[in-house]
Design a protein around this nucleic acid. Structure first.
Length: 568
RNA sequence: CGGGGCGUGGCGCAGCCUGGUAGCGCACAGCGUUUGGGACGCUGGGGUCGUGGGUUCGAAUCCCUCCGCCCCGACCA
């Protein structure tokens, strides 16, 4: 590719409000642009995407997976989605077509796989089967708008049993690890969900990144690692601190003016936040008002609460709902609620408030709290479940060492869905109809590229690895002599003829501009052909990664380029 | 969903407070001088100042609406 004709220039400056160094490099190097709300890939960036696609395809083919392609939009009525059956981090969009049919953008919809399996799979002889597709994806609760839309690669496995599903899952895991290794990025596989049935827990592939969007808890003692929302701890029934001098055998009302928050209350009473009980209200489609109680210093894990209460989503409760059960916002507690029936409110308590010492809780009266509140004596929950969000310092599930918190960028996931689609069945050896066991895996390409850049760059720009680079060689022509120009043009043609992908800087710019652009774009090998060296018949070769420079006779260039091993 | 910030040629910004001919740097075009680490001189083109409304003789500037982008929060009982 001649740079004089390349669409998409390099940038000296980037938009000031981009606070993400890998993305800045991506924009400055001319790989992509930020169009409102999303990334638009430019030719150089598309070449990187193509290289990644090649890597992914090769590795998936290697484990026997076959490529398919889904439709992007589906009539809503065709989808009968079980909650959580979509891949994590993906969510659906709804839209309407001209005849006002509701459509959903669900390009990785597992029900398609189910219906395909129904039509194509009839016998255990056809299983297992591994399928994969590349598709756009949309993640509406992604923090950065430019990461919401992405290119994803999804792998589905269809299996005759859960043990076979584990076996194919291990194969896919191997392929994914090989893909990441070929991209030369460091990342970890972490727990990303609860363990389902006799399968293993969903996992996420996460790069440790300074600019990540996933909170992680890791144990440096035993290696346990999980996304915060899925992290399990040995916390269980750790008792709360006993408020000093509290010995009475019944709750006692105390005046606590202007103490509508836990922090205020703890300060006012001179007690730690862990000696209080906190009440949090949510609304849910399935159960209506949810009244969650947890120790004052802990936060509620919304996902755990959803699972425990058997509901799909939680939204903050409306004040009418709270008032209807006689609770007083700011001073609410489960003690002495009125109109409390399971169909009006579901009280869920964390073990931190049911197994511990007496706590201070709201009195359901403005300006008052109760102290010496004891679970079982003074109140009861409809459901006791671990709904606490794990945090740094909590004891590790396996070895009780304190967990450390960090952030990462989620690049992929693995779920072994326990959902057997009823219609997708096969006949086993004994002629018995059985459901197909499915699992899915995914990789997000934008995030993969950002991680490669973050882990392979310096002050001057990107340093592509040979396998992921947009070009193999960056050829620079310096000087204006016709002979130099002709020699450079000839070398360009020769490299292409040798099957080498070349970015040829044939522009009439100064050396500084060209060198800086070359460093920024980060092609592994830089060739310079100039007035200065042409007279000696020499071409300069510089490795971007090491900075090593050699001068090679013009005739030996192709062989020398091959010798470096720096092209794929 | 809440809070904060921003929106002015392609990019980065100034101008707004205190209303009065829309500016600077980069990039772009032409000419000349340069040419191994983001050169220099001269000349030139390009902007309904995010949208809609209001105040005013006059609005980029003051007021309101909406839209978009960025950051932070989402746990308050």
């Amino acid at each position: 590719m001649r740079m004089s004709a390349l669409f998409g220039r390099t940038l000296r400056e980037t938009p000031a409000d981009i606070d993400h160094p890998p993305l800045r490099l991506m924009l400055r190097a001319g790989l992509a642009r930020l169009t409102p709300g999303a990334i638009t890939w430019l030719p150089v960036g598309v070449r990187v995407l193509r290289r990644l696609e090649t890597i992914v395809r090769e590795e998936l083919t290697h484990i026997g997976a076959q490529e398919i392609r889904f439709p992007l939009f589906r009539p809503l009525i065709a989808l009968d989605l079980a909650p959580g059956s979509l891949a994590p981090a993906l969510s659906t969009l709804e839209c309407t077509d001209r005849s006002r049919r509701s459509l959903t953008f669900a390009p990785a919809d597992p029900t398609i796989i189910a219906s395909l399996a129904t039509g194509e799979i009839a016998s255990y002889r056809q299983l297992p089967v591994l399928l994969h597709q590349m598709h756009p994806a949309y993640c509406s609760d992604c923090r950065a708008s430019w990461l919401r839309e992405s290119l994803a690669w999804t792998v589905y496995t269809l299996n005759s049993s859960t043990s076979e599903r584990e076996e194919t899952g291990a194969r896919v895991h191997t392929a994914i690890e090989r893909i990441f290794r070929r991209c030369d990025i460091q990342l970890m596989s972490v727990e990303a969900g609860s363990i389902e049935g006799n399968g293993s827990a969903p996992r996420a592939y996460v790069a440790i990144s300074g600019y990540g969007d996933t909170d992680l808890l890791i144990c440096e003692s035993c290696g346990y690692a999980a996304v915060q929302e899925a992290a399990r701890t040995a916390l269980g029934s750790a008792p709360g601190a006993l408020p000093a001098g509290d010995t009475s055998d019944h709750p006692e009302e105390i005046a606590t003016p202007d103490c509508a928050t836990i922090a205020d209350l703890a300060r006012f009473c001179g007690i730690p936040e862990s000696a209080t009980a906190k009440a949090v209200f949510f609304d849910s489609p399935e159960r209506g008002l949810i009244f969650a109680v947890i120790r004052g210093d802990r936060e509620i894990n919304l996902k755990k609460l959803c699972t425990a209460a058997g509901i799909s989503t939680l939204t903050p409760a409306r004040s009418e709902q709270i008032n209807a059960i006689g609770a007083v916002a700011g001073y609410a507690s489960p003690v002495g609620l009125q109109n409390r029936t399971p169909d009006r409110v579901l009280v869920v308590a964390d073990p931190s408030v049911t197994a511990g010492s007496p706590l201070i809780a709201g009195a359901n009266r403005h300006g008052y709290h109760l102290r010496n509140v004891i679970y079982g004596r003074d109140w009861r929950a409809d459901l006791i479940a671990d709904i606490a969000l794990a945090r740094a310092g909590d004891p590790c599930m396996n070895c009780s060492a304190p967990l450390r918190q960090t952030t990462g960028l989620t690049i992929g996931y693995a779920t072994r869905s326990n959902v057997f689609t009823p219609d997708a069945t096969f006949l086993d050896r004994e002629g018995v109809t059985r459901p197909i066991a499915m699992a899915s895996f995914g990789i997000y390409l934008e995030r993969l590229i950002l991680t490669i850049i973050e882990q392979h760059c310096d002050q001057a720009g990107i340093i592509w690895t040979p396998e992921t680079a947009p070009f193999d060689v960056h050829l620079i022509r310096l000087g204006k002599h016709d002979a130099t120009r002709e020699a450079a043009d000839a070398l360009y043609d020769e490299l292409i003829a040798a099957g080498i992908a070349v970015l040829y800087d044939d522009r009439d710019d100064t050396a500084g501009v060209k060198f800086n652009d070359a460093d920024l774009i980060g092609v592994p090998l830089r060739l310079v052909i100039s007035d200065r060296f042409l007279s000696d018949g020499l071409v300069e070769i510089k490795q971007r990664a090491t900075g090593a420079i050699t001068k090679t006779p013009r005739q030996e260039i192709i062989a020398e380029v091959r010798n470096t091993g720096l092209f794929s």
